[in-house]
Write a protein that binds this DNA or RNA. Structure first.
Length: 707
DNA sequence: CGGTGAGAACTTTTT
DNA sequence: GTTCTCACCG
């Protein structure tokens, strides 16, 4: 059993007290998660807080999943009923907001890239007007600003856009938070739905735990402060690991939370030790964030004196910093290093490659695939979800489902009347040859007649449409392809997932999509990729079908739940992969937050030229337990001093002894195997064709530096 | 019309 | 840190 340190016990034993705040500052590898788990256990077993009175928040799905998983094992270890864990509320902030809003107003639509692209088509075309936007991101920003203070900057164009979004229940993630807060503040104590989720939040919870508080940003504040008021608030985090600055300032929301409860009921505790990384890695990482190790931490604040800031013994191997001119050289270095490590004591599953961008990650994945190295991408969403072609199919499904409901008068109230408009706009905007002008003319005509777009297209004869002949033809094609599905209500009768998928891809096939969607249609690799994505979507559809309750059509059920189902499915699949044969983990630094790996490669790609964010670099580095390699990290503090470069990690017997001990693995006969390892390495080298690699490695100016 | 300086975007997440 | 756009100036 893991024993806690005195400073960890201090956190755990801090008594429960309503309307108080406990803030725990916990650096990387300080046992933050373990402390949080024991805190929950303590609340339940010692403080007599009921499990259903505890609410745990984090920001990412991965963090939430890992908390639940760890809670299960810790409650099991302490011989407490595992059922208890299911009663503890554990959510991402957005997941919770989503549940509240959906409970109160049914299916909603979270707007994403293609949604914004569709809305952009509604804006006046002139380049000179202030409403012209280069990219959908600009529009997104303007709409956000408008919503923040619509009273001050009146803008009729944006106003109409926002109105359309409201009518179609289209929300940004920030809207989701605001809406959720609104429902929480509503008094529904008189409502007869006695155990609604919203009501539970208003009344039941006593303790709110926030994991990774440094990741919070201002637009989350309304919801979080509403929820935490009057409860005991326990926060864990580390400002040095704040890597979501691009979403807004963390200090802003933190000061709001600090003021939530009276000053004298706030306690700040710190966890100092680092059980994770080698002193070599910690020392370099501290240098990056400009934290002179021991001294500074002792000075600021608590009476706690750090017993040992570093718990692990030196490994004798320094983090290695390398720079390459091109991608080929970088990937050869990585593959070669991996080969060396694998031919020593490391397993594939020990290794993680972390990069800053998802696109670079994809590049690396393809390279690993080429060499036949097993890998696994750590992503919260599966790949098929961000395929635009798939998103188009989903939007077609939404159009059919919503328009059919409207046609057959199944809307619940009048505000639902034109919910289909948004999806229609989005899908029509995806058609080749339909530009801003046509969309605007059509939309205007619909508003004049006070009809939804679909209704207009089906009841107004086409000679009245304010469109050119070729455009009319295209729109007619769109309408006639969807006609049976909507007007004959086929969409809700199709009960078989495969039939439905076939039908809808048939429709998409008949529609001529613009290049953004149909990217590289002729490219065989791309269409193969699409096929794989389709299959993955089909799998989720089948799962969805199998748990569909009676009394709802399959499409509706699928559209309402596919997101959640996909996440569950995806997570289960990833878990299966980790238990199978070892795979190298690929992840962005942001997604790797909270995780640790025995061996870490950090890479920034050779092409992207803008410098590494200090905190992101710090987070990346502190993921590593024993070995750290950094490729093309462009950061000021890494360009310093000179270098012993450990030429051959394979021959470093003392390091591998250290490594195996750290991993709790028997190192029996490791030294004996050394010659054998070298032999194996040379064979693989030959197989992988590293001869070229070596020449190019020599050719590129590798710079090895040390702190 | 062409040069120049300022400022923004590039990237990371949430359903 | 690099690259692009736009307003402004001569």
């Amino acid at each position: 059993m893991d024993k806690l340190t005195p400073s960890q016990w201090k956190v755990v034993n801090k008594p429960y007290e309503p309307e108080s705040t406990l803030k725990v500052i916990a650096g990387p590898g300080s046992g933050k998660t373990l402390t949080l788990l024991y805190k929950v256990l303590h609340l339940v077993t010692v403080e007599n807080i009921k499990p259903e009175e505890i609410l745990i928040f984090s920001l990412t799905n991965k963090a939430v999943d890992s908390i639940i998983e760890n809670l299960l094992s810790i409650f099991e270890d302490s011989h407490t009923n595992k059922e208890i864990v299911r009663q503890i509320g554990c959510y991402t902030v957005h997941g919770l907001a989503n549940r509240i809003v959906v409970e109160n107003e049914g299916m909603i639509n979270i707007i994403e890239e293609i949604g914004w692209r569709g809305l952009m088509k509604l804006l006046p075309p002139s380049k000179r007007t202030p409403h012209h936007f280069r990219s959908y991101k600009e529009l997104e920003k303007v709409v956000k600003d408008y919503k923040l203070n619509s009273a001050r900057n009146k803008n009729p164009v944006i106003e109409k856009l926002v109105e359309l979004m409201d009518n179609c229940k289209v929300m940004t993630n920030d809207d989701l938070i605001i809406r959720a807060k609104k429902y929480l503040e509503l008094d529904c104590s008189h409502s007869d739905a006695s155990s609604s989720f919203t009501q539970d939040l208003q009344e039941k919870y006593k303790v709110v735990l926030i994991d990774e508080f440094q990741d919070l940003y201002p637009s989350l504040a309304p919801l979080i402060t509403t929820i935490c008021k009057g409860k005991q608030l326990i926060m864990f985090g580390d400002t040095n690991q704040s890597i979501y600055g691009f979403l807004g300032s963390n200090s802003e929301i933190m000061s709001q939370l600090d003021n939530l409860h009276p000053k004298n009921s706030t306690t700040v505790l710190k966890l100092f030790d680092n059980f994770r990384s080698t002193p070599e890695i910690i020392s370099l990482a501290s240098k990056i964030i400009n934290l002179p190790l021991a001294e500074k931490q002792v000075i600021d604040g608590t009476d706690e004196t750090p017993s040992e800031l570093v718990r692990k013994l030196p490994s004798g191997v320094l983090p290695q910093i390398v720079t390459f001119d091109d991608l080929a050289a970088e990937s050869e270095f990585i593959v070669d290093k991996i080969t060396q490590l694998i031919c020593s004591s490391a397993k594939f599953s020990d290794i993680a490659i972390l990069s800053r961008t998802n696109s670079h990650l994809t590049t690396l994945a393809n390279i690993l695939k080429k060499y036949g190295i097993p890998y696994q991408k750590l992503k919260s969403q599966p790949d098929w979800m961000d395929d635009l072609r798939i998103q188009f199919l989903l939007d077609i499904l939404k159009v059919c489902s919503l328009a059919s409901d409207e046609k057959h008068d199944r809307g619940f109230n009048t505000s639902d009347k034109w919910q289909s408009n948004f999806s229609i706009l989005v899908t029509m905007s995806a058609l080749k040859g339909i530009g801003d002008a046509s969309i605007q003319a059509l939309y205007k005509a619909c508003s004049l007649k006070n009809l939804s777009i679909w209704k207009y297209l089906t009841i107004v004869p086409n000679f009245e449409w304010p469109l050119g002949l070729s455009i009319k033809k295209k729109i007619e094609n769109y309408t006639s392809n969807l006609y049976e599905m909507i007007e004959d209500d086929q969409i809700h009768q199709l009960d078989d997932p495969m039939e439905l998928l076939e039908k809808v891809s048939g429709i998409a096939n008949n529609l001529n999509l613009n290049p953004t969607y149909s990217q590289a249609l002729g490219d065989p690799q791309s269409s193969l990729e699409f096929k794989t994505h389709l299959q993955e979507m089909a799998q989720v559809m089948k799962v969805s079908k199998s748990n569909k309750p009676p009394g709802i059509s399959f499409v509706k059920w699928f559209l309402e739940t596919y997101f959640d189902q996909t996440m569950v499915f995806h997570q289960a699949k990833q878990a299966l992969q980790t238990t199978g044969p070892g795979t190298i983990k690929l992840s962005t630094i942001h997604s790797a937050k909270g995780l640790e790996f025995p061996i870490v490669f950090l890479t920034n790609g050779t092409m992207s030229n803008f410098p590494m964010d200090t905190n992101a670099l710090y987070v990346g580095m502190t993921r590593a337990r024993n070995l750290l390699y950094m490729c093309n990290m462009k950061h000021q503090r890494l360009v310093s001093k000179s270098p012993p470069y450990s030429r051959n990690i394979m021959s470093n017997n003392s390091f591998w002894a250290y490594y195996n001990k750290d991993m709790n693995r028997s190192a029996f006969g490791a030294e004996m195997a050394h010659d054998h390892n070298i032999q194996r390495y040379n064979q693989l080298r030959k197989k992988f064709g590293f001869y070229r690699a070596y020449s190019s490695l020599k050719g590129c100016k590798s710079i090895f530096r040390r702190i």
